[in-house]
C-alpha cells in the first residue's frame, strides 16, 4: 500500500511537469493551429539557463528561476517572430518542418556552447521530505506538485476570467471573428508563445531538479511525452493538457514500479494509441468541424 501511494505521488509529480510542458503545446496549437516541435528544446534551454545562473553567475535560486523564465520567454517569442510568423499563410506541413528545424537549431547551438558532456543541474528547491502515514515524499516531489498546481490554477483563472484570457479563447475559436472584435491575432499569438515558454522554463527547473543531468538533447524526451500528453488529453484543450500530463506521469511511474522500467515508455505510448483508437479527439478534445 505504501509502495502504491508513493508511486502514485511520484507519478502525480512527474505528470505535473508533463502537464506544464503540454500546456505550451496545447495553447500554441489552440491559438496558432501549429505543432511547435521546438517546444521541448525550450526546456533544455531553461535548464542550461539555470545552470549558468546558479553555477557561473552565482545567483540565488529564486533569481535563477526568474532568469530561466526570462530567457525562455524571450527565446519563445523570438522564435515565433523569426521562424513562424513569416509562415502564417503557409501550409501546416511547412510550419511543422520549420519547427523541427528550429528544434535541431537550438540543440546544436547548445552543443556549441555547452558541449556534448552532460552537466549537473542545480537543486533549486531544497525542501524537507514529508512523511504522511508512513509514506515518504521527497521535497522535490511535493514541491513540484504544489507549485504546478498553483500555476495551473492561475492559468485556468487567467484563461476564464481575464479579458486577455477570454480574447485568447476567442482567437482560438475563430480568428476572423476575433479580429472583427478588435483583437490582434498576431499579438495574441505572441502572448501565447510567451506563456507557453515561461511554463516550459518552470518545468525545466523541476525536470532538472528531478533528473539532475542536462545535455543538449535533454528536451526531446519530455517534449515528446508532453506532446503525447496534450494529444492524450485532447490537443487544444487546456484542462485536457493538464489531465493528459498528469495521467501520463502516473501511468509511467506505475509501469516502472509494477511492470518494467524498460517497458515503461512503450506502455505510455501504447496507452496513447489505445485512447486515440477509442476517442480520436483525446480525452477532453472537442470534435472539430472544418469550416470552409
Amino acid at each position: 500500500m505504501i509502495h502504491f501511494l508513493q508511486t502514485l505521488i511520484s507519478g502525480l509529480s512527474l505528470g505535473s511537469i508533463y502537464a506544464l510542458i503540454a500546456l505550451g503545446y496545447t495553447m500554441v496549437y489552440g491559438i496558432a493551429k501549429m505543432l511547435n516541435f521546438a517546444h521541448g528544446d525550450i526546456i533544455m534551454v531553461g535548464a542550461y539557463a539555470a545552470i549558468v545562473a546558479v553555477f557561473q553567475m552565482k545567483l540565488p535560486g529564486l533569481v535563477a528561476v526568474l532568469a530561466a523564465v526570462l530567457v525562455c520567454t524571450v527565446l519563445g517569442v523570438t522564435v515565433e517572430f523569426l521562424a513562424y510568423k513569416p509562415l502564417r499563410q503557409s501550409p501546416p506541413l511547412t510550419v511543422l518542418i520549420t519547427a523541427i528545424g528550429v528544434s535541431y537549431f537550438l540543440q546544436n547551438i547548445a552543443l556549441l556552447i555547452f558541449g556534448s558532456e552532460q552537466m549537473a543541474s542545480p537543486v533549486i528547491m531544497k525542501l524537507p521530505a514529508l512523511v504522511i502515514g508512513g509514506v515518504q515524499i521527497d521535497g522535490i516531489t511535493w514541491g513540484t506538485l504544489a507549485v504546478t498546481c498553483i500555476i495551473m490554477l492561475g492559468l485556468t483563472l487567467f484563461i476564464n476570467k481575464t479579458k486577455m484570457g477570454k480574447a485568447m479563447r476567442a482567437v482560438s475559436e475563430d480568428k476572423g471573428a476575433a479580429e472583427l472584435m478588435g483583437i490582434s491575432v498576431n499579438k495574441t499569438i505572441t502572448i501565447t508563445f510567451a506563456i507557453g515558454s515561461a511554463l516550459a522554463a518552470i518545468a525545466s527547473i523541476f525536470y532538472g531538479s528531478a533528473y539532475v543531468y542536462i545535455r543538449p538533447t535533454t528536451g526531446a524526451m519530455p517534449g515528446i511525452k508532453a506532446f503525447t500528453a496534450a494529444v492524450f488529453g485532447g490537443i487544444g484543450s487546456i484542462p485536457g493538457a493538464m489531465l493528459g500530463g498528469i495521467l501520463l506521469g502516473v501511468i509511467e511511474q506505475f509501469a516502472k514500479a509494477y511492470i518494467s522500467t524498460l517497458w515503461s515508455d512503450a506502455i505510455v505510448f501504447g496507452v496513447l494509441v489505445v485512447v486515440l483508437i477509442v476517442k480520436p479527439t483525446g480525452l477532453l478534445g472537442k470534435k472539430i468541424s472544418e469550416k470552409v
Partner: peptide, 26 residues
Amino acid sequence: LAHVPEGRRVFLQMTVQENLEMGAYI
C-alpha cells in the same frame, strides 16, 4: 466600423455574456 459577418460567427464555446464582453474588447 463594426461588421456582423455572414453566418454570425459568434464564439460558440463561450457564454452569451462573454461574447458580449468580446464585443467590448476595445
